[in-house]
Design a protein around this nucleic acid. Structure first.
Lengths: 211, 211
DNA sequence: GCCGTAAAGTGGTCAGACCACCCTTAACCA
DNA sequence: TGGTTAAGGGTGGTCTGACCACTTTACGGC
């Protein structure tokens, strides 16, 4: 576990574990070797292994169950987001970056989903919009989650989800209700060319978020 | 350090440290109490404190210097994004997904950079295009790296860079030389509206990658 | 006052000891 | 035979104490 001498043990362990996951083709839900076993095979102390695992856990990469073991999880950065958001809050620069990036992804998802939209989808979207139970933010998430699913690009969806969770704790980022309605309208009237302008018309400000 | 009983100690420590930073108004570069001191005041084992600190370190929130102490670092959320994205990519990468997502980011970067382009920039880009030393792939990377810089959204740039690195291992993904030339042309003739169509005209296939 | 060395402080790491919890298994009883 | 229960072993959760390597500080001799 020596390596570049400057490398801390827990970082080495992190790499080894990642490698192990790759080599064994582990999928979410699969079990990792026990902490003691890892410590033994990697020739590291159990505390060092734990430091690596705790870091991974905080990132939402693994889940641990007392008495059972450590498992690969489907990526879910619940804790990370909360922790990081408290540090990010001040950086306006970051917020704008995030807002813009998110908007771009949402726009493209809307466009990708276009050709795959059928009547049932439109119903579902409208249903979402007029669901009295949902707040504006939940509606935004549900709405675009649906679009991302229809866009059939898992990578984009994941990246968006990550950004969504980040922005979620920092600030509420959704559009005016009119926006969603008009977008659905564009779907039903099959007006692809107007999607882009619709998004472009959104100002990059918090002010345009109203119910 | 009990709390909701389900809460692990290191998570509690994490919260306490965050609170401490807030209360003491610590700024980047400031020193945190030593691990032993934290363990003592928070009534937790040093190993638990270390698990919390290691996790924070992995997130880039703190830096540790052996023999000196632990310090708050200027927080760069992009490092985290990078780490998480690497896992997302591993899970979600499909050639088509990756190609499409990368193209989208490149398109948007091209559009964001538009209004910020001046004569020197155009020279630089043309220079890149006709550099005889570069292969088509290097040229692609250099070309868009420049555009992303001009677009001034570090987050998008990071995400793109990651995708770029991953696409290397899968396949070379670049456009025909005509494409780049036409894009520069659009910049010099200030024809914003044609950027989108130019990208749209690219087929989502490997075949359109030729010199 | 200056310099060098010892001491104290700090992160890095390991080993061992418990605890709480889960699951399997075997023994037990009806 | 079948179902229940108790025990054991495996696992993560946590703490303690012990070193090591390194940096800073303090002390003492010059």
């Amino acid at each position: 576990m020596a390596m570049s001498s400057k490398q801390k043990v827990y970082q080495g362990v992190l790499q080894e574990i990642r490698q192990y996951i790759d080599q064994q083709h582990l999928m979410p839900g699969d079990k990792l070797p026990s902490e003691r076993e890892l410590a033994d095979t990697l020739q590291a102390g159990r505390s060092s292994v734990r430091e690596a695992l705790r870091a991974m856990e905080l990132l939402g990469l693994i889940e641990t169950k007392r008495g059972e073991g450590t498992f690969l999880s489907t990526y879910r950065p619940y804790q990370t987001v909360e922790l990081l958001s408290s540090f990010i809050l001040k950086e306006a620069r970051t917020r704008e970056d995030l807002y813009l990036a998110k908007k771009i992804l949402e726009k493209e998802a809307a466009k990708l989903a276009f050709s795959r939209m059928n009547v049932q989808d439109l119903d579902k979207l409208e249903q979402l919009l007029y669901d009295p139970v949902m707040g504006p933010n939940d509606r935004h998430v549900a709405f675009f989650k649906y679009l991302f699913t229809k866009s059939e690009n898992l990578l984009l969806a994941r990246v968006w989800q990550l950004m969504e969770e980040f922005s979620h704790t920092i600030n509420k980022l959704y559009y005016s209700k009119v926006f969603y309605i008009e977008l659905v309208q564009l779907y039903s009237t099959k007006n692809y060319e107007l999607i882009e302008p619709l998004f472009e018309s959104l100002a990059v400000q918090d002010d345009d978020q109203f119910e």
